[in-house]
């Protein structure tokens, strides 16, 4: 009998600590499948963030380092500039990348670091228990915006893909989502494109993935995927923002 489906070699045989219905597992698997398919596992170094995926190295079966909060792109820069032959990716959430790590991500992108960034945007701080993120939706209730995000007080959610695609430096910037089967297929294709860019030494690549946080949103997994479609997708359009060669 042929094996038609199995664990990617780039994933370890560990049970994740992620909550039921959280989409980190899907995104981990897609990154792992792409590393398998491109034959990159043995020359890849991942950079884990601070946030729910802080322990990502327990699940990925490749070399990994754990960065300080928000500093993953700086650490990845250090790795890639020291060993350009390695494939380097960061895996960051929205608090890590868009709040405390805003400086590091903008400058890594602007320098055109030949790294891949998997940016998981679930509009909330998950690990610390559901605080307001820079990507939290207007009116969204969190533990630090108990009356809902007031845009007059704290501004509108940051659209990182739009912001980063305004940079002149060639890059691959895309926003995608994993709340639908179609979105999952597209996401994996974009992740593959991002890693292929790095193999070809082409450009900085960032794949923003709209993700769910059923636990901190207070929704069951089904309702959470509906919430992504209803609330996040209209504000965070799913599209390729930039490919190398398309700079203005």
């Amino acid at each position: 009998m042929d094996i038609v489906f199995q664990r990617p070699e780039t994933l370890r045989e560990n049970t994740t600590h992620y909550c039921p219905g959280c989409t980190h597992g899907i995104i981990h698997r897609q990154v792992a499948e792409v590393l398998d398919e491109l034959g990159l596992r043995e020359r890849t170094v991942g950079v884990a963030p601070v946030g729910c995926s802080v322990l990502a190295y327990n699940y990925f079966n490749c070399d990994f380092v754990e960065a300080a909060h928000g500093r993953a792109p700086a650490m990845a820069t250090g790795i890639k500039r020291s060993r350009p032959d390695l494939i380097v990716f960061t895996y960051q959430g929205d608090g890590d990348l868009a709040s405390i790590g805003m400086g590091e991500i903008v400058h890594a992108a602007n320098r055109g670091e030949k790294i891949c960034v998997i940016f998981v945007n679930n509009a909330i701080y998950g690990m610390t228990g559901g605080q307001m993120a820079p990507t939290t939706m207007p009116g969204q209730i969190t533990t630090t915006s108990p009356k809902g995000r007031d845009v007059n007080e704290v501004g509108y959610p940051l659209r990182m893909s739009e912001l980063l695609s305004s940079l002149r430096t060639p890059a691959f910037i895309v926003r995608t989502a994993v709340h639908t089967p179609k979105g999952m297929i597209e996401t994996k294709n974009y992740i593959r494109e991002a890693f292929q860019n790095q193999v070809d030494n082409k450009c900085f690549s960032l794949v923003e993935v709209l993700s769910t946080c059923p636990t901190n949103w207070g929704l069951n997994p089904n309702k959470a995927t509906e919430w992504v479609e209803k609330n996040m997708v209209p504000y965070y359009p799913l599209k390729v923002f930039k490919r190398p060669g398309e700079e203005i």
Binding site: A67, G78, R81, S82, G103, E104, V106, R111
Partner: peptide, 26 residues
């Protein structure tokens, strides 16, 4: 060798952290 001007001291110090992780003298 490689010289890189970082965006801040936070950036610089975390870059040497990454570089040192590859066994580089940095």
């Amino acid at each position: 060798g490689v010289f890189l001007q970082a965006e801040s001291e936070l950036g610089a110090a975390n870059m040497i952290y990454g570089s040192a992780c590859t066994g580089t003298r940095v």
